[in-house]
Write a protein that binds this DNA or RNA. Structure first.
Lengths: 231, 231
DNA sequence: GCGGTTCCCTAACAAGCGTTTGGCAGGTTA
DNA sequence: TAACCTGCCAAACGCTTGTTAGGGAACCGC
């Protein structure tokens, strides 16, 4: 990474709307320059697509520019760096994700209903942010070492707390099996949901809700035929 | 990738022991040079570890050399290129995997027992080739575009045939539920197993067999408590 | 003690990387 | 008409990358 630390560290009119978790705190270098947010979104969408397909490191800034129909340098009118594109993609996704999750967790549902709602919400997020989810899965682990991406770890901790907590509540309430290792169960449920982003294509034959329904059916009841169940 | 196509395309004593699927067919350039296989293994192991931790593209050849306690150029005494290290890591893993799988599939077990055996075998492979599995998962998709790595797609096709076939047999034999989308179930089971490589650490508190047992229990019977089952 | 082999180091190479700089066309405002 | 943004291009920058060439130390069999 030839990041020759920029020579003009002037710190101008740092006035952002401050809702984002991470990239919002970064100062905007060039003072007079104000690119339109719509174009940013467009470019971030194509960038996310390329990142997801090729991997972040394998994606050159020239490939992104290519996909966007422009030249490499032109991207720097809209963004500070390649890394800040990644940052914005991931943090935007996580913000939206937690909006949904927090709503579910605040609803005061029972353990089973909470799991069902979380899974359904997750598939909706995958539907909306397929590329971002795919990037997250591939890169999160080694990104979270960098200070800039610490919010990834934070999110993961929060994530684990929500899911694990719900599972434990469920075991205590005897709606989930007590003979399983809860951590193992957590990872099992978490992974099965999110890896779906690697094969899911929006507009396919199954809606997010339908996929969620089937996944939940498998996770909760298993894929084996039951001998005979009396209720 | 500064791969300046080598200027000496001489094609010497091409005599390999020809068991490997992919890299074995590549000619050895330098005629007089014969590095020891043991050292190769060692270096490949550390390379795999770094690849798995940082991602293939983010891993520079200098980092690998560092981890191995040598200098970047020295690696080229043992290997043609960075890419051929990746190749050898992946193909070695896949060869061993298919040895195990083929044995299971040839055993003539019933559908449920086949699934159980495949899952158990998979966790054993994860135990043995954790790094390679992690690399495979992160990189396989975009690698299989390159001709050199076409064997990854081939393997995936074979893989799908084995699992999907077994599941369908199971549905026909009424040991697996018929009300689920079989493809979805396949992806579910497949993903459930293999993502474990991302958190599994050999020598942990659970043996591969124990993890397999719990995973199978979840996949087959679900995590919900059953009302009352009469056999 | 000599030729050969094994394994690594030193030092460079050209290509590709992310990024910067300056400028120019088109639209908007005055 | 002039001044001013916005969005992009053209061309270069310094660094890092994968890779190579040549050499040298240690050990071998003879």
């Amino acid at each position: 990474m030839p990041t020759k630390t920029p020579k003009n560290p002037k710190n101008p009119s740092d006035a952002d709307n401050a809702s984002h978790t991470s990239h919002a705190s970064r100062a905007k270098k060039k003072a007079q320059v104000t690119p339109s947010p719509e174009r940013r979104r467009e470019l971030l969408d194509t960038a996310a697509e390329v990142f997801a397909a090729q991997g972040y490191n394998a994606t050159t800034v020239r490939k992104i520019a290519d996909a966007a129909g422009m030249l490499a340098g032109s991207l720097y009118y809209h963004f500070d760096s390649k890394e800040s594109m990644l940052d914005e993609i991931l943090s935007t996704f996580l913000n939206e994700l937690w909006e949904g999750y927090d709503a579910v967790l605040a609803a005061g549902l029972g353990p089973r209903e909470t799991i069902e709602a979380l899974v359904t919400e997750s598939f909706r997020e995958i539907d909306r942010h397929r590329a971002a989810v795919a990037i997250y899965q591939k890169e999160a682990r080694h990104l979270s070492d960098q200070p800039r991406f610490h919010y990834l770890s934070d999110s993961q901790v929060k994530f684990e707390k929500a899911w694990l907590g719900t599972l434990e509540r469920g075991v205590a309430a005897q709606v989930f099996r007590a003979d399983l290792d809860v951590r193992l169960t957590y990872r099992f449920v978490r992974d099965t949901v999110w890896v779906a982003a690697s094969w899911y294509r929006p507009g396919g034959q199954h809606s997010p809700e339908e996929i969620a329904r089937q996944y939940l059916s498998m996770v909760l009841d298993g894929i084996a035929v039951r001998p005979y169940v009396r209720t």
